[in-house]
């Protein structure tokens, strides 16, 4: 076991983790944060995308101890305490982006990192970033539209 300190969705956590524990199992099994999915299990599909210190990482291919000293953000942390959805979650609903929904958490987490890095992304930026994640249902265009609309709306806010 190895002792780590990190924050998970803003809350400090200290404790021991098994050296061989991957981040996604740490989150799902030890913290019941089951919004993060596992699909390919090879860091290729993006379903397990979470943010570590604001950067998107594959939680299936990152050992949990590497989060020591870092800040982990998962889909559960996006919704406000009052239950209000994050603008990207709302945009995904508004644009009917969900079908089976399995990829959605990873897509939304990746999109939050995109809008943090580039608040006003071009369509090409969105395609380049979101190309990291795989969706087998929607054909991607709704996903791209939702992110573009969300970015556009944010820009129009005072």
């Amino acid at each position: 076991m190895v002792e780590i300190n990190c924050t998970i969705n803003g809350e400090a956590w200290s404790g021991e983790v098994e050296e061989s524990r991957v981040l996604v199992d740490f989150l799902r099994r030890e913290h019941q944060l089951t919004g993060t999915r596992v699909a390919c299990d090879h860091a290729a599909c993006g379903a397990c995308t979470v943010l570590l210190d604001g950067l998107p990482v594959a939680a299936c291919a990152t050992l949990a101890f590497e989060a020591d000293g870092g800040a982990i953000s998962t889909i559960e942390g996006l919704t406000g305490a009052d239950g209000r959805l994050h603008p990207l979650q709302q945009a995904f609903l508004d644009e009917s982006v969900f079908q089976c929904g399995f990829c959605s958490s990873g897509m939304i987490m990746l999109a939050t990192a995109l809008l943090d890095a580039k608040p006003d992304p071009s369509r090409q930026d969105i395609v380049e970033w979101m190309g990291a994640n795989v969706c087998r249902c929607t054909g991607y265009s709704q996903i791209i539209d939702a992110i573009a609309h969300c970015a556009g709306k944010q820009k129009r806010l005072p």
Binding site: V2, E19, S20, V24, D25, R28
Partner: peptide, 18 residues
């Protein structure tokens, strides 16, 4: 109760010293 596909990493990593 939750051993479903997608509920955890399907591979076991052998223990190691870190």
């Amino acid at each position: 109760p939750a051993e479903l596909v997608g509920s955890h990493s399907g591979f076991r990593i052998a223990p190691f010293e870190l």
